[in-house]
Simulated assay, not measured.
Amino acid sequence: MKALIQRVKHANVSVKGDVVGAIDQGLLALVGVERGDSEADADKLLHKLLHYRVFSDADDKMNNNLQQVEGGLLLVSQFTLVADTRKGLRPSFSSAAPPADGERLFHYLLAQARAAWPKVATGEFGADMQVALVNDGPVTFLLES
């Protein structure tokens, strides 16, 4: 599993013009599921999402994690994140998990996140979504399980 995370001042995701998930300060995580990923991969990724130190401390150093700043976590499924772009001018999605597996693992990650942290929001798996954010920094990292 992969997650492209962005430290945000606020972010939201809309489907058909309706906001379905929103957070204030925290992390926006665009999540891609690859073939062969498992619940163990989702658990490892969630641990990183909750504990990765990307927020500033009193000395303006990236020493605090999401929980320490009591931030929100906005999880958005994005299968294009796992595209192979090494050859040609069109992405290949052969490494992406089949839709049923991707949906199952994304919902597993979401359930585990909600059990571990009270400030979790999400988009809608497989929907045409619009994501709005104010990137803080900007600070962006690619996490892999």
Rank of each mutant, 00 (worst) to 15 (best):
113 A>D: 02
107 H>K: 12
121 A>T: 03
118 P>K: 12
130 Q>P: 07
126 G>I: 13
110 L>G: 00
107 H>L: 13
95 S>Y: 10
108 Y>T: 00
105 L>R: 00
127 A>H: 09
103 E>A: 06
131 V>I: 15
106 F>I: 01
125 F>S: 03
105 L>K: 01
107 H>P: 10
121 A>I: 03
109 L>Q: 02
99 P>Y: 08
119 K>H: 11
111 A>D: 13
126 G>D: 08
104 R>C: 11
126 G>N: 10
99 P>S: 05
117 W>Q: 05
115 A>D: 15
120 V>N: 05
108 Y>H: 05
107 H>I: 00
131 V>P: 01
101 D>Y: 03
105 L>G: 02
99 P>I: 06
115 A>K: 15
115 A>G: 14
110 L>W: 03
128 D>A: 15
129 M>V: 14
124 E>T: 12
122 T>L: 09
108 Y>F: 04
114 R>L: 03
100 A>L: 13
121 A>E: 11
123 G>L: 14
100 A>M: 11
111 A>W: 03
122 T>S: 15
103 E>R: 12
119 K>S: 05
111 A>F: 04
125 F>Y: 15
121 A>P: 02
130 Q>M: 13
111 A>G: 12
126 G>T: 08
128 D>S: 14
107 H>Y: 12
121 A>D: 09
110 L>N: 04
127 A>K: 10
104 R>G: 11
131 V>M: 06
124 E>Y: 08
112 Q>N: 07
96 A>K: 05
126 G>W: 10
116 A>W: 01
130 Q>E: 12
120 V>I: 09
110 L>E: 04
99 P>H: 07
125 F>M: 09
106 F>P: 00
107 H>C: 07
111 A>V: 01
115 A>R: 15
98 P>S: 04
122 T>A: 15
98 P>R: 06
104 R>E: 06
108 Y>R: 00
104 R>Y: 06
101 D>V: 14
102 G>P: 08
106 F>V: 02
125 F>G: 00
113 A>G: 04
113 A>F: 03
104 R>Q: 12
113 A>R: 02
131 V>T: 09
107 H>F: 12
104 R>M: 13
112 Q>R: 13
127 A>D: 08
122 T>D: 15
119 K>T: 10
96 A>S: 14
111 A>N: 13
131 V>A: 04
124 E>Q: 15
123 G>A: 12
117 W>T: 00
97 A>T: 03
130 Q>G: 06
129 M>I: 15
103 E>L: 08
129 M>G: 10
99 P>T: 05
106 F>S: 01
108 Y>V: 00
97 A>W: 01
129 M>K: 14
126 G>Q: 10
125 F>C: 02
99 P>Q: 07
129 M>F: 14
117 W>V: 01
96 A>N: 04
115 A>C: 12
105 L>V: 09
127 A>Y: 07
102 G>R: 02
118 P>T: 09
130 Q>S: 12
